[in-house]
Amino acid sequence: MSATFETVAGIISETCDIPREKITPQSHAIDDLGIDSLAFLDIAFAIDKAFGIKLPLEQWTQEVNEGKAPAEQYFVLENLCKRIDDLVAAKAA
């Protein structure tokens, strides 16, 4: 598993008090882990700080709400980690 996933899983475990072993790359943050929108902002803050990025949560939420993107695209952890890696790479470029 990627270093990004390990960091994200650790953040989610600590922030939401979810046992680390329950968090897998295939976990859906909302459907599987039961993370609500407020808790997700808490996670976003920790991710922003850990990776030096700004997760575009408002844009993602709008896309999901308007049916332009499936929620899985952003909230399944392996997909979320891919987005994080892309944002980190874009920042470094």
Partner: peptide, 9 residues
């Protein structure tokens, strides 16, 4: 101290 997307600290 931090301006996030949809939140601020």
């Amino acid at each position: 101290v931090h301006e996030g997307s949809g939140y601020a600290a």
